[in-house]
Design a protein around this nucleic acid. Structure first.
Lengths: 98, 98
DNA sequence: CAATTAATTCGAAATTTCTAGAATTATAGT
DNA sequence: ACTATAATTCTAGAAATTTCGAATTAATTG
């Protein structure tokens, strides 16, 4: 994962609503949650939520699967893992020399 | 570390320039680097850089120590560690059930 | 004390983000 | 076909971010 992709993903997680969405999806687990479920749980207006979800999907933080009328959102664990790895490798070089 | 503080910190790292600054400071190590050094290394105009550094300091990503005329910037490793811990604990709950 | 150096603050424009109601699309049920 | 449901797209205003030259502050040097 390269610099700008990392920055873009961190920026997406760096919004209170989107971080809440991601945390909710992680709690929901691998089967994910529908947009409507997220909306009810977090109380974000539909159009606002849709906008945030689109952004998260764009950078690869979540996956969206259409099941007839409802759309299921699934967190991309590997993507977050990549982010964490980057932060560890590139940003914690001096942590051992505490 | 609570939700909004995490979001704020991630948002700061979620800017290409600021992420570059942080990475540079980590490479610089515990003795840090002066604002001027960062400026020369990354080629960011002084006023722009100053603005970014102020933001990073505000959320606790870096520390700024004044040494006469020059200001030394030091990365806050513990802060990043806290961020990573949060992401692991709150956002990777399902990673084992891969 | 004038000049230089290091960095910040000011100010202002350009861009992006955030928000959310209204309209729209797509699918399912009656 | 009509209605209800799930979600998106459109639109537009408000707010925040980003950028950087110019002016300023603070400390050092000649």
């Amino acid at each position: 994962m390269e610099h700008d992709a990392v920055a873009a993903s961190l920026a997406e997680l760096g919004n209170s609503h989107r971080l809440a969405v991601f945390r909710f999806l992680v709690k929901a687990g691998h089967q994910g949650a529908s947009v409507g479920d997220i909306q009810k749980a977090l109380g974000i207006p539909a159009s606002t939520l849709s906008h945030h979800l689109a952004r998260m999907a764009k950078v690869g933080l979540i996956l969206q699967e259409k099941r007839s009328r409802t759309i299921i959102c699934i967190p991309e664990y590997q993507h977050l893992e990549s982010l964490i790895s980057f932060l560890r490798e590139e940003c914690c070089a001096g942590i051992s020399a505490r």
